[in-house]
């Protein structure tokens, strides 16, 4: 059974159909990078996978569990699917530690007594151990994004979603976030990313999905897709990104 199964999904915002019959399968351990022009529906697709967006037709299953259905099931599912956003979305009124431990404590993953140790562990993974008592506003964008990743890791997710996580960062801060993501990839985390970082897509991804006008236009391993694109749309997209 594939970890993520997306079947014939349609999604509209009002009269605008942004996903048109999208199907995609992600196996455990895969690192799937979704690329495409803005407005191609890639972020929307990612947000559908953890139920932040509802869908009009088709179905999405994660670990066999349907995403769009019961709220309670969705909540359980979200505890196993981490998402990192472009704008970090840390909780500004909480320290780094509380940002990380809030959900694990509330969902019974860790006791209050062990929570700090959990925060220390995941912060070490993103190289920010010394920031455990800081507030988000005291951190740089790159550090905030790494805390956001640590916050997801604290839930021991089976799947991580990344929604253009480096797009809001100053260029010199992009590297530190990508490095953390590479580390996660090398540890076997299943990841689905929407990104404009073509070099990262080429080097780290196991599969590239090119979306165009709300459809999966082309998909395949990066070596194939980047060296010999089949469609003129992908060819022109790759050309414009060099």
């Amino acid at each position: 059974m594939a970890l993520v199964e997306i079947k014939n999904v349609r999604k509209s915002f009002g009269a605008l159909e942004v996903l048109k019959d999208v199907s995609l399968t992600v196996e455990e351990g895969e690192i799937v990078t979704i690329i495409g022009r803005s407005g191609s529906g890639k972020s929307t697709l990612l947000r559908c996978i953890n139920g932040l967006e509802d869908i009009q037709d088709g179905e999405i299953r994660v670990e066999g569990q349907q995403v769009h259905g019961q709220m309670k099931k969705l909540r359980e599912l979200r505890q196993k699917v981490g998402i990192v956003f472009q704008a970090f979305n840390l909780f500004p009124h909480l320290t780094v530690e509380r940002n990380i431990t809030l959900a694990p404590i509330r969902t019974g993953r860790v006791s209050k007594a062990d929570a700090r140790a959990l925060a220390e562990k995941v912060l070490a993974q993103v190289g920010l151990s010394e920031k455990i008592d800081a507030y988000p506003e005291q951190l740089s964008g790159g550090q905030q994004q790494r805390v956001a990743i640590a916050r997801c890791l604290a839930m021991s997710p089976d799947l991580m979603l990344f929604d253009e996580v480096t797009s809001a960062l100053d260029p010199e801060l992009v590297g530190e976030v990508l490095k953390v993501m590479e580390d996660m990839a090398s540890r076997g985390m299943t990841m689905i990313l929407v990104t404009h970082e073509m070099a990262f897509a080429r080097d780290v991804a196991t599969k590239i999905v090119f979306m165009h006008q709300g459809r999966v236009w082309e998909e395949g391993p990066p070596s194939e897709l980047f060296s010999s694109p089949k469609t003129p749309e992908l060819k022109s997209f790759i050309g414009s990104n060099h």
């Binding site: 953890n50 932040l52 909540r75 359980e76 998402i83 956003f85 959900a103 839930m155």
Partner: peptide, 16 residues
């Protein structure tokens, strides 16, 4: 609104 989304994505209930 993204604060609701971030919290929801961590598996917290609407009340939490």
């Amino acid at each position: 609104y993204t604060q609701w989304e971030a919290a929801a994505s961590l598996g917290l209930s609407r009340w939490e």
